[in-house]
Amino acid sequence: MKDPYEVLGVSRTASDSEIKAAYRELVKKYHPDNYANNPLADLASEKMKEINEAYDSITKARAGQSAGGYQTNSQSGYQSAYQNYGSQNARNSNYAQIRSYINANQLDMAESYLNTAAERDAEWYYLKGVIAYRRGWLDEARQHYQTACAMMPGNYEYQNALRTVQGGYTPYRQTNYQNNNMDAACDICNTLLCLNCLCGGCGR
């Protein structure tokens, strides 16, 4: 296992609050929301696991040293978010199968299954969009996402996906790089709010 301090990018003498701040910053950077439908989501998920483990091991080690020191719970909600992502809304088993192909990056397989489907509902267009998005075919992805959203308005998953190709929702950026785009800032807030609802809804 890697040195947990190195993973969080802090020195061994860093205070608890400094470590917490570094941890939060990294969580923000590798948040599942930034890698939704991303072909590299598996790497981001591994990275997140590494960060959580590093934070856990530091807080545990420090709590053990100082008697009566406060114990910080690791935020396991972040860990589970990756697994939960995408499992909702899989209404029929065919779509569930296609989603698992997509998550395994077997896009050709997923697409050929999808093309045999008789019914072209909102989910069909959404999955078609996800496949295009993972391939980097962003124009096509956006067209399909738009169709899915129009067919089933109010579906958060489809709306979030559409937002990722509208350029407004920007993943993590270093703070000094932020341009003064208020729309983008609002979109980030909205997405975080949505994510909060999702995490709350997972029964934890």
Binding site: A44, G167, Y172
Partner: peptide, 18 residues
């Protein structure tokens, strides 16, 4: 078109972070 290229920026940035 700008939104499409911005999405490319986002995807490239997300990959860079990994």
């Amino acid at each position: 078109l700008t939104q499409l290229t911005d999405s490319s920026v986002n995807l490239a940035g997300a990959a860079l972070a990994l």
